[in-house]
Every structure is written in C-alpha cells, then in structure tokens.
Design a protein around this nucleic acid. Sequence first.
DNA 1: ACCTGAACACCGTTCAAGT
DNA 2: ACCTGAACACCGTTCAAGT
Lengths: 189, 189
Amino acid sequence: MGTREDLIEVATRLLDNGGVPAVTLREVGRLAGVSHNAPYKHFADKQALLAAVAARDLERHSMLIQQAVRRKRSAKAALSEAMGRYIAWALEYPERFRLVFGRWTTESPELTAAAETAQAGLVGLVEAAQASGALPAGDPVRLASLVRSVAHGAADLAATGHLSATGKGHAGPEQLVDDLLTYLETAAT
Amino acid sequence: MGTREDLIEVATRLLDNGGVPAVTLREVGRLAGVSHNAPYKHFADKQALLAAVAARDLERHSMLIQQAVRRKRSAKAALSEAMGRYIAWALEYPERFRLVFGRWTTESPELTAAAETAQAGLVGLVEAAQASGALPAGDPVRLASLVRSVAHGAADLAATGHLSATGKGHAGPEQLVDDLLTYLETAAT
DNA sequence: ACCTGAACACCGTTCAAGT
DNA sequence: ACCTGAACACCGTTCAAGT
C-alpha cells in the first residue's frame, strides 16, 4: 500500500544482497513499481532512505530481543539470551548490522532514539543480574558497555570473517560472551 | 616515484576524508598526476586498490603495536598497551579501520596474511600474561579472542558514536579493556 | 611495461511539468 | 500530495591506440 513502506522494504532486500552499493535509487524505484526518482518524494536523498532502513531494522530487532528476554527466568539467562540474539542478528543480516552501527554523517532522530531505547534495556538487564548476584557491583552503565562491547566486537569480527580462523582455539561469538559472563560471575562472589 | 605507491597514498588520503565513496579512481588518478584509468595498470579494479590500502594500513599499525609492546616491562602492561594502540587506531583513522575489518568479497592474500600475523602476536602477549599470572589459565587463542573482541567492539562503537558518550556511566574504550583485564586478573588468582 | 583518450552503461540529483 | 521524463554531472570499466 504505502509507497514509502514499499521503498524501505525493497531497499532492505537490495541491501541484504550486495550491500549498500547495491541499493541504488533507480533499482529501488524499479522494483517498487515507480519511476526512478519517485523516492525523492518520500526521502530527502539516498542517505535518508538508508537511515529509515536502519532505524526500522534496529527497532525490529530490539523488540525481538525484548520478547525473548521476557521468557527467561534468571537475570543471567536473560542477559545471555539478549546478547545471543544480538549476535544472531549480526550473523544473519550482516549488511543491516553494519549499516545500523555504521558512521552516519547525517543524524537520524529515529535511529538515535531506537539506539537509546536498546541501550536502556540492556542496562536494565545488567542491573537485574547484579541484584541476583550474577554480576559484580559497580556502575551498571559501564558494565553494560563492557558486555555489549564483547558481543558487538565478537559479532562484527565473526560476521566479517576475522574471528573464525580455524584451529582448536576457535570459539564462536556466543561462547566468548558466555566466557565473559562466567568470569564476571566468579568476580562477583 | 612508484606510481603504484602514489596511488595507494592518494587513495588513503581520500579515504580519510569522505570514506570509501570518496575514493573514486578518477580522483585518485587526477591527484596522482596520471590519467583517470592509469590505476587499472596497477590494480585489477577499485576493490583491489582498496585492498592494497587496507593491507598497507594493517601492516603499518601491526608494526607500531609491536614496537610499543617491546618497550613494556610486564606482560599485562604490554597487553594493555597493544589494545590501547588498537583503539587509538580506530579512533584516529576510523575509515581505514572500518575498511580493514570490513566485508571483503574478493579475497586479498596480503590482507589475510597481515591479519594472521597480528592475531599471532596477540596470542603471544596473552600467553606471556598467563605465564606471569595476570590472566587465568585456559586456551590462549580463545582468551585472546575475548580480549580482542572487547577492544574491537568498544573501539568500533566509540568510533561510530554508539558508546553512550554522555552521562555518568560514560566509559571510554580503553577503560573498558582495562576493566576486563582487571576482572580477568582477579579470576586468575 | 606503462600510459592516454574516447566510449559505454550506470548512478544521484534536480527541474519542469503533469494528475 | 504524489508522480513522471528529460537532463546534468559524475563514476567504474573497457578498448584501441600510443611510447
């Protein structure tokens, strides 16, 4: 129905194959059944369309993570599950992941808002885990940044093939996050 | 002298401002004082030129890290210094960093080789730190992946402005790495 | 071996015009 | 309000030709 939604959907599909260079406004218009510059009636420029794609994907995955977290009983399991979903996102849709956490020259309010909401949710999980004794005391924001950095770094390195070099020491991103959580739990006691 | 070296140098300069989209072969040729398609005599295509830029930067920073590490006395200080340089690289030249650790469709042997050398050096630092009691026992490759994931994730998030820059809980990438090393040290005893 | 100029197919963006 | 077609300046890549 909405041409605007169609454009975002088509752009996301093109992004998944081929990456950002494959998202040409002409191809987006063509696949959406409009002229090659109809997108300019809905988005200021290509960057704005990509920002809409990124914001939409970030919101969607934040919701998926929140839903999965609610099903968990322990705070530690919830935190592990949240990071696991974060990593799965990066591995399944690496181009979207790289886009969302890429370098934005033009600021997108909806993208910033979605990122802040996701960050706040993670801090809440960390606070709950601290209260249950699964994480050491200390500034929860700082601890949340540490946990997310491991998840983000491991996911990014894995998605770009810079982590999974073969050999006996090979550990997947989820394992590395769980390693961290285990070390933190021993440090908490 | 060498046109090939000039092309790499010019491309790096263009990359630092404007990112990958600003690296056009026509502008590279123009700034290097050759025709707009002379680069094709030295590189198969644009991707190959970018791979040469990335490999060169990775080798250079690996050397810088190794030099800095040799000046340190304790294994823990060396490891912290290495990760600090890694982070400084990401923050000072974010476009090069994103390029080096980006998604490569075409494989570049020299880039792969440089990455493996850097990884091996990090594992060596981790083993030394384990021997000195600063890090817990266990597979050094896996532990190195954990340390590098924090450094990589924190650096990438900071370079892209996604690491909660404001607020009391604000912690820089270096702090997060040191937080991890401290937790690991307590877990080692 | 290295470089040039013309050419082709493409792309982002703008503009005047249409309903 | 939304869309179209033509147009402009650009870009990656190829090719025939030059030294």
